[in-house]
Amino acid sequence: MTIVEVKELKKYYGKGDTEVRALDGVNLKVEKGEFLAIVGTSGSGKSTLLHMLGGLDTPTSGEVTVDEKELSVLSDDELTIFRRRKIGFIFQQYNLVPILNVWENIVLPVKLDGKKIDEIYINDIVKTLGLTEKIQSLPSNLSGGQQQRVAIARALATKPAIILADEPTGNLDSKTSQDALGLLKITCEAFHQTIVMITHNEEIAQLADRIIRIEDGKIVSGERD
């Protein structure tokens, strides 16, 4: 089942001589449960593509459909709610809420929906990610790797349709990167999540089920026929 579909997606910045074509007609499909890596050099458009998939930014033209919902027809509030329920973000700089502890950061998206926290499920994630002992700690008291694990847990908490990871190991050393990615893969397999991860690191990309290469705003390889 196709969980994400992108048709002729374009994102242009500026006009005339200063126009920058961050995405220049991208077509993409992602299957449910797939672990997709998008690889490209700096300025290739991979982050822009990820932001489009997550509704963090609006395209110049084209369509993005996530879980059978076309994002361009949604209002700002509908998009926000959609992001909350359907998309789990893992940022390069973790972007945890500094005043909330680990537990609170993880369950925040669930609480926003007013839903009852599935404590068994959350505890399971926490245990899998090895965060049990740090559950009451603030982000400032955690190492980079620990913070990234919290970010992963937060992304999983709402059982989203898709997890979007933006250079999740970009701020980690190699060992921690391996550990974090390993955990990401395990938890996603365990909870049947679809992951789209962007990276510039080929080695890390190898952990994915499929690799897409993007250059100058266009997919150059890896797109499924």
């Binding site: 509030d77 926000t80 992001r83 329920r85 972007n95 809420v97 925040l108 926003l112 929906d113 937060r154």
Partner: peptide
């Protein structure tokens, strides 16, 4: 600003 954008990114509506 960054914190508020995180809230928006993870799904807190502007109104909230």
């Amino acid at each position: 600003k960054q914190e508020i954008s995180i809230y928006r990114a993870i799904g807190i509506r502007h109104e909230m």
